[in-house]
Simulated scan of single mutants.
Amino acid sequence: MSKNASAQLNTGGNVSVSYDDGVYFDVAPIIGYKIEDLKLNLGLSPIFSYKKPLSSTQTILSGGGRIFGQFYFLENAFLHGEFQTLNTQTSSTNADGSKNINRVWTAGLPVGAGYEYRISDKARFQASVLYDILQDKSAPNRMPVVRGGIVYDL
């Protein structure tokens, strides 16, 4: 990076929603670092998710984290990629009909595109659509997600 490169620490949060065999919802505070000269925003985020499958009365709560990168190919449009891992609940049925409930770590690689709208000098709204290309069979969600949130430049 050159001596004159400008960078900006940012924070905020976002929510993601999806619907496959039930409702999926996650919330994630973020901390990021935007490098203007390279048109990049890099960051990390804890994730807390909720899923209510249609086929069950049980809810699935998961927690984990993600690291992400955004490349701005136009002034307000970006490509988004991330690696995420979630500790989530899985269940299996024994031969006698009883259920085993376990917790496992899942991995995801959501990618997609988004758009941001500047709200003020320091705040912007971001919206994106992401698809997990790894499709971990134990992940709480395997459908594309719609994500929206606020990013605040510090």
Score class of each variant (00 low, 15 high):
Gly148Trp: 00
Phe125Gln: 11
Ile150Trp: 00
Gly81Glu: 05
Gly69Trp: 01
Ala123Leu: 10
Gly63Leu: 13
Leu130Glu: 07
Glu116Val: 11
Asp121Cys: 11
Gly81Val: 11
Lys137Met: 13
Arg147Tyr: 02
Tyr115Asp: 09
Ser62Arg: 00
Val111Ala: 04
Glu116Gln: 15
Ile67Cys: 03
Arg118Gln: 15
Thr106Trp: 06
Pro144Val: 02
Gly114His: 01
Val104His: 06
Asp132Gly: 05
Gly65Ile: 06
Ile67Trp: 01
Ile101Ser: 07
Phe125Val: 12
Pro110Lys: 03
Ser92Tyr: 02
Lys99Leu: 15
Met143Arg: 14
Phe68Trp: 05
Trp105Met: 06
Asn102His: 12
Tyr152Asn: 06
Pro144Ala: 07
Thr88Tyr: 02
Ala95Lys: 14
Ser98Trp: 09
Ser92Asn: 02
Ile101Lys: 09
Asn94Thr: 09
Thr88Asn: 04
Met143Ser: 15
Ser62Pro: 05
Gly97Asn: 08
Ala95Asp: 14
Val111Asp: 02
Arg103Pro: 06
Asn87Arg: 13
Gly114Met: 04
Thr93Ser: 11
Pro144His: 07
Pro140Phe: 03
Ser92Lys: 04
Leu61Glu: 14
Asn76Glu: 14
Ala113Pro: 03
Ser62Met: 05
Asp136Trp: 10
Gly114Thr: 03
Leu130Phe: 06
Ala107Gly: 02
Asn102Thr: 11
Ile119His: 11
Ala113Thr: 08
Pro144Cys: 03
Met143Thr: 14
Gln70Asn: 09
Val129Met: 12
Tyr115Gly: 12
Ser120Asn: 11
Glu82Cys: 01
Ala127Gln: 09
Gln126Glu: 09
Lys137Gln: 13
